[in-house]
């Protein structure tokens, strides 16, 4: 929780940034928001803001997290997609040093009319499952439709050559597995070797890849509409099939017979194609879907290490480092044991 001194500094910072005169920070509370950032909600109250109150979300770096990313990247992603047909909260302010709250943080608008749902709930959307599904895949298509050079992303992330997208991602996550494993990982290593032997065709065009687009990382209004896509901390420029494959990873599907637990697979792809203006590439998808399970496993291996080393003892890291790793090990083993000798 923020200290009284930190809250006072935050109020001073907001007064300067919003240029509204004195600001009071009220109703501040920590909320669940994943383990990659500490997440707080609060009201900024001032005489000069129309209505006097604005609701904000503050995301502060924790001492250690599941995912080592720069908050500038996540901030740039929110700015890139605000007002462009992808529901995201407005990015308000970024502090990349420890001058105000001891650690870097950023502030964004709060979406008050939205709830999140866990992918591990048995039926997270009830009667609205299909309408959420249509929105889910259409919004993902809308992200893939945006020209990455027309966003702020090239200023904060590298832009790979299309033929290097797969290698860059695989190199990165292989290194995470190798650096963070507390024990030998024979299933992850088998997946890495299989992926290297079967590289995918490059995408015709690059796209901004959300990097963690899945059930659980958006808000919905309880009536079948998605109100905000969140958690852009792994955003990068790459192959849009990567996002589609991650969204469809079996780990996130409460109903494994449906795409992301939401829609018939073919209908999901149809919505994505319509919104993206791109064609679904089944061969590339096969590669990226195996990659997604490996990437998930790498993230869970990292969370285990952070928890084990005592750098971050949030119980969500123990959960993901254990349960999610167990699931992804089985997903990969079931898949690769059926396709021995080289195939995907």
């Amino acid at each position: 929780m923020l200290t009284a001194e930190e809250i006072a500094r935050l109020a001073d910072y907001l007064a300067q940034t919003l240029q509204t005169g004195p600001v009071r920070v009220e109703n501040l509370s920590r909320i669940p928001g994943g383990a990659s950032r500490e997440t707080y909600r609060f009201d900024a109250v001032t005489e000069d803001i129309a209505g006097g109150v604005r609701g904000f979300i503050l995301r502060r770096d924790p001492p250690d997290s599941l995912i080592d990313t720069e908050r500038a990247l996540e901030f740039a992603a929110y700015k890139s997609f605000f007002g462009r047909g992808v529901p995201v909260p407005e990015a308000i302010a970024l502090v990349a040093d420890d001058s105000v709250l001891e650690r870097p943080f950023f502030i964004m608008e709060r979406i008050d009319h939205g709830a999140s749902s866990s992918p591990f709930q048995p039926d997270p959307f009830g009667a609205h499952r299909e309408s959420i599904g249509r929105e889910f895949f259409s919004i993902l298509g809308a992200i893939a439709a945006v020209d990455p050079y027309d966003t702020e992303m090239p200023g904060v992330v590298d832009t790979p050559a299309p033929e290097d997208c797969w290698r860059r991602e695989l190199d990165h996550w292989q290194k995470v597995v190798e650096d963070d494993s507390l024990e030998p990982q024979p299933i992850a290593m088998a997946a890495i070797r299989r992926l290297r032997r079967n590289p995918p065709h490059p995408p015709p065009k690059l796209a901004v890849v959300h990097g963690d687009y899945r059930v659980g990382n958006f808000l919905h209004d309880g009536a079948g509409r998605i109100t905000a896509v969140l958690d852009w901390e792994m955003a990068h420029i790459g192959d849009p099939m990567e996002d589609l494959a991650w969204a469809l990873d079996p780990l996130w599907a409460s109903d494994p017979t449906r795409a992301a637990g939401l829609l018939d697979f073919e209908e999901a792809i149809r919505h994505w194609q319509q919104a993206s203006g791109r064609r679904f590439n089944a061969e590339a998808f096969q590669w990226w879907s195996l990659f997604s399970s490996l990437k998930g496993l790498a993230i869970w291996i990292s969370s285990s290490k952070a928890y084990h080393d005592g750098k971050n003892t949030d119980p969500i890291l123990a959960f993901s480092g254990w349960y999610c790793a167990t699931r992804h090990n089985k997903i990969i083993a079931d898949r690769l044991s059926q396709t021995t000798w080289g195939g995907l």
């Binding site: 591990f120 299933i187 349960y323 167990t326 699931r327 089985k330 083993a333 690769l336 044991s337």
Partner: peptide, 18 residues
């Protein structure tokens, strides 16, 4: 793969509804 699947299968966890 039989050995790897043996471990993966035996470690599966039942997730109660949240």
């Amino acid at each position: 793969w039989d050995v790897l699947k043996l471990g993966a299968d035996h470690r599966q966890l039942f997730m109660p509804g949240l």
